[in-house]
Amino acid sequence: MEAFRRAESLVAQRRPLEAIRVLEPVLDIASDKKSVQLLLGRAYLFSAQFRRAELAFLRVLELDPSDHYARLILGRTLQRQGRLIEARTQLRLAATMNPDPAYQEALGEINARIATDPRFE
């Protein structure tokens, strides 16, 4: 538990690479814990390891398909990879599950990007 809390603190301080190192022993014993995968995914996202972040968030959704925050942050991760259609799908689901204004804003942002991107005409 101490290592997990330390990793949380490091992610909050925007020190994701250190957080990933701290989480390594936690993963050995708790890789099936949603909170561990979510924190790991955030650390990967903040360190621009988008594919690894995506896999961690997908693991969270395997464990709990109704986790709207995991869908939101997965959508943001896909967006950072330029995978806008996939991102929109996740953001739509997240906004449907949780009508928080921040979720609606994220969905509106991705819809605007798709609408103005000539690849999607």
Score class of each variant (00 low, 15 high):
39 L>S: 08
19 A>M: 10
10 L>M: 07
40 L>M: 04
51 R>G: 00
56 A>Y: 04
36 V>S: 05
53 A>W: 01
28 D>K: 10
30 A>C: 08
66 S>P: 00
40 L>S: 07
64 D>V: 03
2 E>W: 01
7 A>M: 12
39 L>F: 05
52 R>A: 15
43 A>E: 09
65 P>W: 01
20 I>A: 08
37 Q>L: 06
4 F>N: 09
1 M>N: 12
81 Q>C: 09
23 L>G: 09
83 R>Q: 15
10 L>N: 06
28 D>H: 07
87 A>Y: 04
82 G>D: 13
36 V>W: 03
79 Q>N: 07
87 A>R: 02
35 S>I: 06
34 K>Y: 03
23 L>Y: 02
35 S>R: 14
42 R>K: 14
46 F>V: 00
20 I>T: 03
62 E>Y: 02
61 L>V: 07
43 A>N: 08
77 T>H: 06
79 Q>E: 14
81 Q>K: 11
85 I>C: 00
66 S>K: 11
8 E>Q: 14
22 V>D: 04
7 A>W: 02
10 L>C: 04
20 I>F: 05
2 E>I: 12
89 T>W: 07
70 A>L: 06
60 V>F: 01
6 R>D: 09
89 T>K: 14
71 R>L: 09
22 V>W: 10
75 G>N: 04
6 R>Q: 15
66 S>W: 02
44 Y>P: 04
81 Q>L: 07
66 S>Q: 12
5 R>L: 13
10 L>R: 09
14 R>D: 12
51 R>V: 13
39 L>N: 07
53 A>Q: 06
65 P>Q: 11
72 L>F: 05
46 F>D: 06
2 E>F: 05
27 L>H: 06
74 L>C: 09
60 V>L: 04
26 V>H: 02
89 T>S: 11
74 L>Y: 06
53 A>F: 03
8 E>S: 03
52 R>S: 15
16 P>V: 07
48 A>E: 14
9 S>T: 09
17 L>Q: 14
47 S>T: 04
35 S>L: 09
86 E>A: 15
85 I>S: 11
28 D>Y: 01
30 A>E: 14
18 E>Q: 13
40 L>D: 03
6 R>V: 08
3 A>W: 10
82 G>N: 11
58 L>S: 10
71 R>A: 08
33 K>R: 15
20 I>L: 15
5 R>I: 10
1 M>H: 12
15 R>L: 14
1 M>P: 12
8 E>R: 11
26 V>N: 06
42 R>I: 02
77 T>W: 09
39 L>K: 03
35 S>A: 15
49 Q>G: 01
45 L>M: 08
25 P>C: 08
60 V>R: 06
